[in-house]
């Protein structure tokens, strides 16, 4: 089973990755080969077997809802390239 270039482009858009034409061709081949290999799982009978998403027997882990110290704003913003008045600054998002 092989992926098409259109499928590769669709996945890249879902993942918000800009790929070059050369990358699209390469990933189409490599991902097809890996998925082909992974298809051996389809032959395994998993009827009635639950999925393991975590190995721990934990359910929700709750804590008391109380105020605790957190990072000061200047520290939280220190790694941002664009910031203004104590906020992260981003380009407008509504005009596309």
């Amino acid at each position: 089973m092989g992926l098409t270039i259109q499928e590769v482009e669709h996945i890249a858009e879902l993942a918000k990755l800009r790929l070059t034409a050369e990358e699209k061709t390469r990933y189409r081949e490599q991902l097809s080969a890996i998925l082909d290999y992974a298809n051996c799982l389809q032959a395994v009978d998993t009827t009635g077997i639950p999925q393991t998403a975590t190995v721990l027997p934990l359910k929700n882990v709750m804590r008391e809802d109380k105020q605790q110290p957190s990072l000061p704003p200047d520290v939280a913003l220190a790694n941002a390239q664009e910031k203004e008045n104590g906020f992260f600054r981003v380009p407008p998002i509504l005009d596309e």
Partner: peptide, 18 residues
Amino acid sequence: RGQGFGPEVKRRIMLGTY
């Protein structure tokens, strides 16, 4: 993301997204 991630990371993000 396209310029910042290397080939293996992009490959795995693509595989996982799929």
